[in-house]
Amino acid sequence: MTPAEQVRPSEQPGLRERKKRQTRVALSQAAIRLCVMHGWAAVTVEQIAAEADVSVRTFRNYFGSKAEAIAAAHLERMLSVADDLLARPAGEPLWDALLHAVLGQFSPSPESSSQSDRWRAGVRLMLAEPALAGEIVRTNAAAQHELARAVARRTGTDAERDVYPKLVAAVVATGTGVAVEHSLRADDPAPLGTVVAQVFEQLSAGLPQP
Rank of each mutant, 00 (worst) to 15 (best):
Q12H: 03
R8M: 09
E46A: 15
S109C: 10
V172M: 09
W119C: 03
R18Y: 02
E181Q: 12
R154Y: 11
E181K: 02
P3S: 03
V25N: 05
R153W: 01
V81T: 12
A42C: 06
V171F: 06
P208C: 11
K19R: 15
R77N: 12
E46N: 06
A72K: 02
L99S: 10
H74Q: 08
M37R: 15
L98V: 02
P9H: 08
H38D: 09
L127F: 14
A205C: 05
K166D: 04
A4C: 00
P93L: 11
A72W: 09
R57K: 10
R120P: 12
R154P: 10
K66W: 02
A205V: 05
V151Y: 05
R120A: 13
P110T: 15
A30I: 01
A30L: 00
P93E: 10
E76R: 01
N140D: 14
L192K: 07
Q115S: 03
L192Q: 14
A150Q: 03
E5M: 12
A143M: 06
M1A: 11
V178E: 03
P89I: 05
L86F: 04
L34H: 11
V196I: 15
A72R: 13
A131M: 15
P108K: 13
Y164F: 05
A97F: 06
M126W: 02
W95F: 14
A72I: 05
L125A: 15
F106Y: 09
A205H: 07
L85E: 08
A30D: 09
V123W: 03
Q12K: 08
Q105P: 05
V56D: 03
A31V: 06
T194H: 11
Y164L: 08
A31T: 13
I48A: 12
R18Q: 04
D187P: 07
T176I: 11
A42P: 07
S28Q: 02
M1Q: 00
R118L: 07
D84A: 15
E146W: 13
T157E: 14
L192E: 11
R33G: 10
D53L: 11
G122C: 01
M1D: 03
E135V: 10
N140S: 15
V178G: 07
T58Q: 00
G14E: 08
L192R: 02
G206F: 08
R88P: 06
A87E: 08
E11D: 14
A148T: 14
E135K: 08
T155A: 07
A30K: 02
I32E: 12
E68G: 01
W95K: 12
R153H: 07
V199F: 08
L207W: 14
D53K: 14
T157P: 04
G134R: 10
V43S: 06
H38A: 02
R149C: 13
H182V: 13
S109W: 03
V45W: 03
G193K: 07
R185H: 15
I136Y: 00
A50I: 07
A31K: 02
P13I: 12
G104Q: 10
A170K: 13
